[in-house]
């Protein structure tokens, strides 16, 4: 088959009748123009390759489903598909804005990592250990109420029943426990911030 003389419309027609070789001729004939058009818009080889592939997958699907309209010419039709996919690509980019770090501003200075890194984990453990040491310094009655409330998650009603004191006394012990803890922290210059 003379590749140069056969019209696109004939190749499309033969392809629709099952001649896969005709599609190969079509793609070989037009690949450079389609690819160059896409590349001239997206200016990135990998993206151009992806859009080129998506374009021809759409071409194949439409042709095989018998939805190709013979009224239009083949290449302008393919170029229109490519053009629409390029627009889709830019729409996607706008939905997912990219950010480039500069010397003045690093995005990671405001974005937190949900997972603690090794350093932050060590600091957290140190803080928890300091808090335990401070609690150990409290008078026993205050320590007891604070541990029940903060570590065992008990209500003041449960604490009062457990310790045999009134709810108001339990509340008062908790209040003094916190006041004393603050004093101990200030006195010993303990930093409890990660």
């Amino acid at each position: 088959m003379d590749k140069l003389k056969v019209l696109d419309s004939s190749l499309v027609s033969n392809y629709l009748n099952g001649d896969e070789k005709c599609f190969e001729i079509l793609i070989t004939r037009h690949k450079q123009r389609v690819y160059n058009f896409i590349f001239s818009k997206v200016l990135n080889k990998d993206i151009a390759e992806d859009v080129f592939q998506d374009t021809f997958i759409k071409v194949i699907n439409t042709l095989k489903r018998g939805k190709y309209n013979e009224e239009g010419k083949f290449l302008p039709w393919v170029m229109r598909i490519a053009h629409n996919l390029v627009i889709d690509h830019f729409r996607k980019c706008n939905r997912m804005p990219k950010f480039k770090n500069t010397d003045e501003f690093d995005i990671f200075s405001v974005l937190g990592d949900g997972e603690l890194n090794a350093e932050k984990q060590l600091i957290k453990e140190q803080i928890l250990s300091d808090v335990r040491r401070v609690i150990d310094e409290l008078p026993d009655d205050q320590k007891e109420v604070l541990i029940m409330r903060m570590y065992k998650d008990m209500s003041f009603k449960e604490i009062s029943e457990c310790t045999g004191v009134s709810i108001n006394t339990a509340l008062g012990r908790m209040r003094y426990a916190l006041i004393n803890m603050r004093k101990l922290i200030e006195k010993n210059n303990i930093i409890l911030v990660n």
Binding site: K31, Q32, Y35, N36, F52, Q53
Partner: peptide
């Protein structure tokens, strides 16, 4: 520039 041969083959 041209698309990669592997892309053509894939299609």
């Amino acid at each position: 520039e041209q698309p990669k041969q592997e892309t053509i083959q894939f299609l």
